[in-house]
Design a protein around this nucleic acid. Structure first.
Lengths: 347, 347
DNA sequence: CTGTTAGCGCCTTCAA
DNA sequence: TTGAAGGCGCTAACAG
């Protein structure tokens, strides 16, 4: 915040109470129920009364409370998007969800419920339980780590870390994508390829490791288990792992990282050790976050079509809301070649 | 969604009802009030009772409803971020807000309430009124277009399009930024510089135009009013405007667009007319959205520190929630030179 | 046509 | 230490 100009102004003003339906009723000289009917366009109200109420509503600036009405109404016309936190991955998804919902009669409520919670685990159940049943008509849950059952509203899971357990799921071909990534490195001539493995408790990470192994085996390259290290899915976790991989004398000439965040971190670690990418080391990631393309050099990666996945989840959810059956949709992965991969120095 | 594999599975399962506080009370053989006290850590409950209740809570998977409890409680520990829609600009801010709130006891609730509403105008008041007073303890409103007053919770406005009207505001130095953009073009040797003006009803657009004019005047370049056209803030609106500017025989050698979205659109229009950027035309934007840096060529632009602005808004709001005074924080703009600007062909 | 009654799920007095 | 009653703002049935 350095360089920011700060200007102190007024003190804390005691905030006026919210205008409630009762205030409107009193001011218009009618009952609360009547105001409710007017607000909801129910018929059976005299035109004169309706007009008068509307006038007061306008004058007082009254809006029905989403919360209160959701406790009585069935449908709220609000879709919930539940995420652990708002990081680039979920924000991209949210972007897709938003544009898909643009043309519909639904509003979006995005909730990051693990921010405060001491216990990170189980955020998805907690959030769903806290919002479901009342506030939202349906939910899209991003990368849940537990199986969701016994839920009160239709739910679609995007990229669930437990696999396609729940009924409705949208995800990407992780195995195929990881295979493509590894094959790309192999085709460039790399033979010693390290793998910065993701969170081992998550299915997506296991699948990516599997794809890595499959590609090596298919190419007849023996798997060196010591080249597979746990890098997690976050930068902090990947630092040491990348260092371990790059610190050894027989370091790999290329690294396939389980996601873009750890790939970027690997590049940073490499640089700090005097290794330049892609000259001394090739790196490929997974996800294709905005940061992958905007950095310098641009990160070669496997693209998950996040926008399209968000859109697909919306269509699926809307269909379910409409009584349709739930499905499982798997999107194809795509290789995006940028600047961080090239043939090894000693081919 | 082409290429996606779809697998139909189970039909629509009737969703079980949510577990309520009453279910827990019944199962534990106590009153609802007792469960409530246990859940909220109130004292005056026998250890044995508390333990038994907690056991049932765990077994049934009960979570207090955020909605219901917010209607009675004062604080919900939830901060609301209100946006017109989830596009890159607000998503970046949300990112900053999220990371700033990471270490606090607050959860985040982001709401896009103008999606369904027929009337786009006044979304900020409507959203605030629908959520405020109950669900959220405070709100951060992104680019509100109206003045907010008579509100029930502390509010911080980010980049308000009406200027620093409300008490608490976080914004960027629009005038200075626009001046920097124009000066950059001038310093490269450009003299005929067009301006794709933003929404003329918004202060930020007026300020950017002002900065543009100031820079030209300071350089002694006469202002050609015909080079200033309305491009709005969205791509669709900018298409025709850019076409008008580029279609004329004495077209400008450079364009300063009011934001990145319209700058990118101008580049697209230029390309469709056979003009290549930056050879035939230099283009500079404003905002520095992720898309500005990830595209090819990279867009030269004026950076608004969106992440930092989100963070600043959070700190401001937390201070206000704590009884502090409201402030106005202005962040500095920064010139980011990438690939879309260079000296004009005929210098 | 309009008002009254009864909650939605929860928390907070206030008695017992 | 616990439970009963009342009410948050709103809407859905039912009376009148």
């Amino acid at each position: 915040m350095q360089g920011a100009a700060v200007t102190a102004t007024t003190g804390h003003r005691t905030s006026p109470r919210r205008v409630t339906i009762r205030d409107v009723a009193n001011a218009a000289g009618v009952s609360v129920a009547t105001v409710s009917k007017v607000m909801n366009g129910r018929d059976g109200i005299a035109a004169a009364t309706s007009e008068r109420v509307l006038g007061v509503v306008d004058e007082l600036g009254y809006e029905t409370s989403l919360i209160a009405s959701s406790m009585r109404k069935r449908r709220t016309q609000v879709i919930g998007v539940l995420v652990a936190e708002f990081e680039p991955f979920s924000l991209q998804l949210l972007n897709g969800v938003s544009s898909a919902l643009q043309q519909t009669a639904y509003d979006i409520l995005a909730y990051a419920g693990s921010v405060s919670a001491g216990e990170h685990a189980g955020w998805e159940r907690r959030s769903l339980s806290r919002l479901g049943g009342t506030l939202i008509d349906g939910a899209i849950i991003v990368t849940p780590t537990v199986t969701l059952d016994e839920i009160s509203v239709p739910v679609v899971a995007i990229d669930p870390h437990t696999g396609p357990t729940g009924p409705a799921v949208v995800d990407t071909d992780n195995v195929g994508g990881a295979r493509m990534a590894t094959e790309h490195l192999i085709s460039l001539g790399h033979r010693r390829i390290g793998h910065l493995r993701g969170r081992t408790d998550l299915l997506s990470a296991q699948q990516r490791e599997q794809g890595y192994r499959e590609a090596l085996m298919a190419a007849g390259i023996p798997i060196d288990e010591s080249l597979i290290v746990d890098g997690g899915y976050r930068a902090a976790r990947a630092t040491a792992a990348a260092g371990e991989l790059l610190g050894r004398p027989d370091r790999p000439s290329a690294i396939f990282a389980a996601n873009d965040v750890t790939a970027l971190e690997a590049i940073r670690v490499a640089a700090s050790r005097g290794l330049s990418v892609p000259i001394d080391l090739s790196v490929i990631g997974f996800d294709d976050l905005p940061a992958a393309g905007s950095g310098r050099p641009g990160l070669t990666t496997i693209r998950q079509p996040l926008l399209e996945m968000g859109t697909a989840a919306v269509h699926l959810l809307l269909a379910m809301l409409d009584g349709g059956a739930s499905e499982r949709i798997q999107m194809p992965a795509e290789l995006i070649v940028r600047d961080t991969t090239q043939p090894p120095l000693f081919f």
